[in-house]
Design a binder for these strands. Sequence first.
DNA 1: TCCGCCTTCTGAATCCATTCAGCCTATACC
DNA 2: GGTATAGGCTGAATGGATTCAGAAGGCGGA
Lengths: 361, 361
Amino acid sequence: MSVRPRSRRKATLASLAAELGVSRTTVSNAYNRPDQLSPQLRQRVLDTARLLGYPGPDPMARSLRTRQAGAVGLIFTETLSYAFRDPAAVAFLEGMALACEQAGAGLLLVPAAPGGLPDPGIVHRAAVDGFVVYSMPDGDPYLAAVLERPLPVVIVDEPVGVSGVDWVGLDDRAACAAIGRHLVGLGHRRVGVIAARLTVNRHDGPADLARQQTAVYAVERLRLAGLADGLAAGGVRWADVPVEERFDNSPAAGASAAAALLDRHPDITAIACTTDVFALATLEVARQRGLRVPHDLAVTGFDDVREAAPAGLTTVRQPMLDKGRAAGRMLLDETERTEARHVQLPTDLVVRSSTGPARTA
Amino acid sequence: MSVRPRSRRKATLASLAAELGVSRTTVSNAYNRPDQLSPQLRQRVLDTARLLGYPGPDPMARSLRTRQAGAVGLIFTETLSYAFRDPAAVAFLEGMALACEQAGAGLLLVPAAPGGLPDPGIVHRAAVDGFVVYSMPDGDPYLAAVLERPLPVVIVDEPVGVSGVDWVGLDDRAACAAIGRHLVGLGHRRVGVIAARLTVNRHDGPADLARQQTAVYAVERLRLAGLADGLAAGGVRWADVPVEERFDNSPAAGASAAAALLDRHPDITAIACTTDVFALATLEVARQRGLRVPHDLAVTGFDDVREAAPAGLTTVRQPMLDKGRAAGRMLLDETERTEARHVQLPTDLVVRSSTGPARTA
DNA sequence: TCCGCCTTCTGAATCCATTCAGCCTATACC
DNA sequence: GGTATAGGCTGAATGGATTCAGAAGGCGGA
């Protein structure tokens, strides 16, 4: 069983035309505009192509000529492989895939360099008709590279406020304010927070106010600000709220953060997490410690991933699939505009059994 | 806030060279081979490029010239959006992404046409250096289109036995034979089976022997054959085993199949499913009907997805991530070969609490 | 002073297909 | 018979960059 001939192309559109004694235009039309030539001739072209092993017009040459790649690029904060581990990211991908399917466009996942240091060259080398940039920190080099290219761009979630660039995301601040109000409404006054990474460099531990100021992840910044807003409604001073930061949005990281909060602040009655992954891990830690939820500890998340409902997690639902679809459609939408678009998708506070009245200390 | 200029390119490598009074080669070298020109000149080139708004060498032109796309294509049986809903497919994708990251290659997801009828043209238009074909039925038109292109191809799982093409998959037959032996070893003699789609056209219902013969999904064919092998070891005649087929690998479909089996064959003591999704749904149906697992009903799955362990599901573990990585590496591996490669990854029967001794009727 | 080598840079062929404007021949109609 | 029309086909310009073989100039060594 020998390998298929992977030989360099033998025949080209031109050589096929020569062989047939017709013009290149005609051969091209045989593939791209069947109505432009007689069925007989077309058949003869196709037959001869098969005979000569001509695989049809070369995609790269066609792309060069037509200035169309037939694909959109997608760039992540994280390494690609991580993206597939985050349920929220997967749902987003599904939405983007849906939009691409409908448009008949390919979806090119652009990998970040795995080592440490970024290589934005990969962005310059991607043959695409536009980019969707998913949740990047302020000042990211890949994003900078994307913006250098003369292509349409849609930013999802973050960074916010990049001038002249389409954006789709949430009102993260308002959504988290609702969580804060929900908690204080239940009587919680001593609240701990588990936040995802605030900076590009790994930091696992408490994030004081100074550190919060330096956050380059806009979404996380806004979520903390929203929690502050909401808790303030109950007279809670944000400066007194312990925030535990974790670089990885993983169950293990969430568990360690929850443990740290509970150890250092045994009096807290609620933990608000900026992701469901953290919140689910926190529920597990509570269970292991024999804390009853919500009686001893209330827990909230963000995203409303699939596992949230069965776990009874109070959280903020965001339409992740719609987000992907909206981003894809926005990018693929050809209509000319003078103004950058700005789409804010709705969120809902979903109250389940993981929150309830604060225990009276 | 007006949109960024998305204008057609103003400057080209040639115009930049002309502006600078240097050759095109020199400009090209400034980007691709910094060591081939003096640092001062290189800086001057880069500065002028910025000034003229030249975004660097055009990816399509470069691809045409170098005959390299810097990306690999991935094709699914299903529409892309479905792929993200199947946990096994997501794990596979993660593995492929890992391989691509390491090689610095992009990953182009090629969408199948959403409507009904396939459009293999999308395969011919994809600018990639090779294709991974994930689990396709015999005679699939997209696969045929892939094979027409003079590019390396790796087939994952199915179809099997395509001559001269690299392949990575499992010994599905042996893996399922182990399940069959496990069940008969526990004393089960009346077993029902839930199988995934056998043909391209939707069919939801019992699949008799004749129908099983017509299956175009090789993996499903092999899994059924394996179950037959294993059950035969206990004297069970395959012709007597009811097989319930479902087109969609979804919880709802699995539940309806389980219900159908239990209704029509109330005497069965075990249900073997060819996917974990089906098996988990079957467990749920058993619960709803008040059947104790495994006492009243034993259940087995296939894949060992994340949810399998918490559910106590006896299943076959397959290294889904490794499969993706292996496929990616195989495709990206440049070394010349004369023989097509054939990689069979190991599987394990994982016995958990969903199987136990058959009840004595 | 001359030779050889290294560094820096250039010329021109090449990758492969798309597409606009237009030509020719029949057919249709009056 | 004459003219408009449609169908079928062609010529040639064009898209933008890579890369090989080699030229020109500078420098060290004998």
